[in-house]
């Protein structure tokens, strides 16, 4: 792959990755949020594939396929199942309103840029230069996790954090060692499964998945 094409594809994949993350903040409809998450999974898979093809590393390309399948197919499928099992389909009333959260997302992008300066300084290759984008997605994920009230939105927030971290891993060093990557993917899958079961139980116990009901245990 020639260098210009590589950088262009890399930039496009990063842009799509970031855009999907920001749009999650924008939408209230849970089905749309899950679709956006799946789209982000595709972008992440493409990103890793571009890096793998450029490095000529079949292992990374294989991982890209695996990541794409996990994050664009398997996890959204699980989320959709949790959603169709019942419950309201909308994020009715986030703790921070949507316009303000979008503004916060802009601030988070700047924060990510400031924080990753040492990283970019260590190796200013095109891929490493895109690390702030991935970190922005991590921060947006945390923000979703903190400000959304629906169980499913929180799970998506957690997964956004995870997507962002995976992107950082591949952008910096073409990924952590294979065994660790496999372990991480398995852990994420299981964590989502656990959360899905807990969501179902919560609905049985509370009749809803509004996490504001989680206030029995406090001091």
């Amino acid at each position: 792959m020639n260098h210009v094409l590589y950088v262009r594809l890399l930039d496009l994949a990063c842009g799509a990755f970031l855009l999907a993350g920001v749009l999650v903040l924008w939408r209230r409809d849970l089905a749309a949020i899950v679709r956006l998450f799946a789209a982000q999974g595709v972008a992440l898979g493409c990103l890793v594939a571009v890096l793998g093809v450029d490095a000529g590393d079949p292992e990374v390309v294989g991982l890209a396929v695996g990541i794409g399948l996990l994050r664009a197919v398997a996890l959204p499928w699980l989320l959709r199942r949790a959603m169709t099992a019942g419950g309201a389909g909308r994020e009715t009333d986030p703790r921070v309103n949507v316009a303000a959260s979008l503004m916060v997302a802009a601030l988070l992008a700047l924060l990510a840029y400031a924080v990753t300066r040492p990283v970019v300084a260590l190796d200013p290759a095109p891929a490493v230069r895109a690390v702030p984008v991935a970190l922005t997605v991590v921060l947006i994920g945390f923000f979703v996790l903190v400000t959304r009230r629906r169980a499913l939105s929180q799970v998506v927030g957690f997964l956004l954090v995870d997507n962002g971290i995976t992107a950082v891993a591949f952008l910096t060093t073409s990924g952590v060692p294979l065994i660790v990557e496999l372990g991480v993917s398995l852990d994420v899958l299981l964590a989502v499964l656990v959360l899905q079961v807990l969501t179902a139980r919560m609905r049985a116990a509370f009749g809803d998945t509004d996490l504001d009901d989680l206030r029995e245990l406090r001091d």
Binding site: H3, V4, L5, Y6, V7, R8, L10, D11, C14, G15, L18, L19, V22, W26, N97, V98, A99, A100, L102, M103, A105, A106, A109, L110, Y113, P124, P126, R129, A130, P132, V133, T136
Partner: peptide
């Protein structure tokens, strides 16, 4: 409406961020 416009503002800001973050080939 402010939501829509705030969203477009964020996109614009991210566009600036992206033009600084991502190297031009």
């Amino acid at each position: 409406v402010p939501e829509l416009l705030a969203g477009s503002f964020v996109l614009a800001l991210l566009a600036v961020a992206a033009s600084y973050f991502l190297v031009a080939p």
